[in-house]
Simulated scan of single mutants.
Amino acid sequence: MFKRSLFIAAAFGLFVVADAGCKKQEESTTPDEVAEATPKKKGVSEDNEDSMVAAGPSSSEGEGESAPATTDMDAAVAKEDPKVKKPEVKEVCKTKTVGKGKAKKKETTCEMVDSNPKLSASIGVNGLIKGFEWGMSPEQVLAKLGESINKYFDDQLKETKNPMDQDRIRKERNDQINELKKGHVKFGSSTKHKWGVSLIQYEFADDNNEEMIWVKEGSKLRKFYFFKDGQLWKIVYAFNKEKWADKDYAGVVDGSFKKWFGVNPAAKTKQDPKTAAVLLRYNEWTGEKNEKVRSFDMTEVHGVIVVAVVDGVQETSIGERLPNIKGDDKFTDTVGDVLGTSDVAYDEKGNIIEGKNSTK
């Protein structure tokens, strides 16, 4: 599979969450996760942090496995863009009296507050979908991804003089273009696809004119582009938890997501309609055009942390699609059950079986 670069919006200042003791921390211009070397070539896949489309494979990690994206959102956030006026983020402290009688005392709590949380969210969303627009057709998204693959290999061909190496590069390019096409899935019960027992099982509906394109970016990231009536309306990013091996989900939210989308997400829950039991807790950021960013802790069920970016306008008619963390998932696997390929799926025991997806 080919490596794809991940970008973010023009960077918007790093946010630091204050601790309960109201101790101020110094703002850092260095991200928690330091990115690897970033290519500086321009084009459809210009600068990794500026593009969501593929940047070609890498042999820097593992045999036959593309390495993770060389840059990600954390790296991009560390760069200042003078053209973008970022919302002010400051620490706000409040003092209140607690207890009674002799136990009565004052407590001070502090938190970081964004002066314009919708703008911060929009900056993050715009960066994530740069190069793509809501409403794009599957063909347009495939073309964007294909352009990046071709550019990557064209650059390699320009630097290669050996005819045998040139043939190898052309073959790799053709293989990746073919793999990209296999990632185009139409959701219909007649296609007998196997995505109904995967991480994204609640993200689509069969026989509802819905489609998906999914791509793999090394061993740590999967991207899913969802379409309704031929229009792009949601992109889901499934990060292997090993991307943040030293952090739990709360640490990832504080150390990364609040830098990407803003320090004040709304804490949301999904409840069982019959018992009111909480099935899911997640964070949600809302942008200026009602675009939504949601983050989900799915490490226990699927071994991934998920970020979903949604066109809020289309979602109004389609309906909210959320995971069911504590639902009746019949089997789990770390990352394998997220994907399969167009020709590989898993049975209820988690064993690989042959399947057939509708592809284009």
Rank of each mutant, 00 (worst) to 15 (best):
I169Q: 02
N48Y: 12
D333F: 08
K40H: 10
R294H: 04
A67W: 07
R281V: 12
D175M: 12
V293F: 07
A9V: 01
K23N: 14
D343V: 08
W233N: 00
S59Q: 09
L279H: 09
L322G: 05
G255I: 00
G251N: 10
K258N: 02
S58E: 08
E133P: 00
N283C: 03
A308I: 05
V89M: 10
S115V: 06
V313T: 14
N240F: 14
G183V: 03
P323G: 09
K259A: 08
G146E: 15
V263M: 08
G183P: 02
F331K: 02
T275Y: 05
V304R: 02
I8M: 07
T275L: 05
V236A: 09
L339E: 03
N283Y: 14
V17C: 07
L339A: 05
L280M: 13
F296V: 02
P57Y: 12
C110A: 06
D297P: 09
D74Q: 11
S189C: 01
S60P: 00
T341P: 01
A20F: 15
R4W: 15
F15V: 11
V309R: 01
I352Y: 13
M164H: 02
M52R: 09
K349I: 06
D333G: 11
I352C: 09
R222L: 15
V77L: 08
M112I: 06
P163K: 04
K161R: 09
M73R: 06
G127A: 11
Q201M: 10
S28I: 03
G327C: 08
K247Q: 15
T286D: 02
A69I: 01
W285T: 01
Q156G: 11
K259T: 08
A103Y: 12
I352T: 13
D337W: 06
F2A: 14
S120D: 02
D81H: 09
S219L: 14
P163V: 09
S358I: 01
D32A: 11
D229F: 04
R222E: 13
K105S: 13
A55E: 13
E139I: 02
I305C: 09
Y282G: 05
